[in-house]
Design a binder for these strands. Structure first.
Lengths: 155, 155
DNA sequence: TTACAATAGTTGTATCTACAAGTATTGTGC
DNA sequence: GCACAATACTTGTAGATACAACTATTGTAA
């Protein structure tokens, strides 16, 4: 009987986790700290900048942040003046989160830095490989999301 | 003057984060919960199973868990009986963390499930692409780690 | 229209996390 | 070998997170 073995250096979740952690740590400490922003806040702002105003529940899905956690993060961000939270006109149980001018200004200054980080991260890799990398990550996410949905539907 | 734009769907840190989160969420809820293990604990056990007994500081680096956080996690794991913490013989300020028989048994049962998750995650992707994906992730990590070391050395 | 289910968001609470500051041990230069 | 720096780990404390339970609003089916 052979013992199940796990080669970490070739195990996708491990590789993904350490990359995510290392990028977030450095970007947070160097780029975000001056603005008093956390990584979670940056993710919210990046999503809003990229996809426009969102309901909190959609924002939660887009940022991978749990809804109750996001609720409090948005509260803090409103206090900081970087986003606004207004009741939806169509449905008053919904809320619309939107970047303020101040928040928008900060993202504008952060986006070039974010691109720099991406360049550093992919340094030395052929453009073709980076394209494959990103395509694979999109597919992996789709696979996991599909699995999730199927599992929930079956329950 | 053109406004800096961030296309999230092509932004590496975003793609990495959502993949890491989705895998961890599902693996945690489905595979780990029955054992009362958190993702952080699983990471510790996976590293120990894969690389053998480790000092806490090395374990911290290998798991991407901050040292003080890891200290408390190991304390909990010792109480659960899945790892042992003993003073190093060579240096009593060091500590050696090791899987117990119980801990080892749990990892053995979890490793096949972990492999299943990896299969689900990479379903539909050509083996060549998966190879590129993993190679890229290793390189990206090396790039970020190198950047970190250089920055710290300069300070 | 009225009841009931589903959806969106918030809040209570326990737990987890991370920074900073602490203790203890080991290494190093004089 | 003695002072001082560096390393390994722990702990105090404040803040962040997640689950569950809650309120409020909207959808739906009889």
């Amino acid at each position: 009987m052979t013992t199940a073995k796990l080669n970490l250096d070739n195990y996708l979740p491990y590789l993904v986790n350490r990359v995510g952690t290392s990028i977030a740590e450095q970007f947070g400490a160097e780029a975000l700290a001056p603005y008093g922003l956390s990584i979670a806040m940056w993710r919210v702002m990046a999503v809003l900048a990229s996809t426009g105003a969102q309901r909190q529940i959609d924002l939660a899905a887009l940022t991978s942040i749990e809804v109750s956690t996001l609720s409090r993060i948005v509260t803090r961000m409103v206090r900081m003046g970087v986003v606004s939270r207004t009741r939806s006109t169509s449905s008053t149980r919904e809320v619309v989160v939107k970047l303020t001018a101040k928040g928008n200004g900060q993202v504008e200054r952060l986006i070039p830095i974010a691109h720099d980080y991406e360049s550093v991260a992919t340094a030395g890799l052929p453009a073709d490989d980076v394209a494959v990398l990103k395509r694979c990550l999109r597919r992996v996410y789709a696979n996991m999301r599909n699995r999730q949905v199927t599992a929930v539907a079956a329950a």
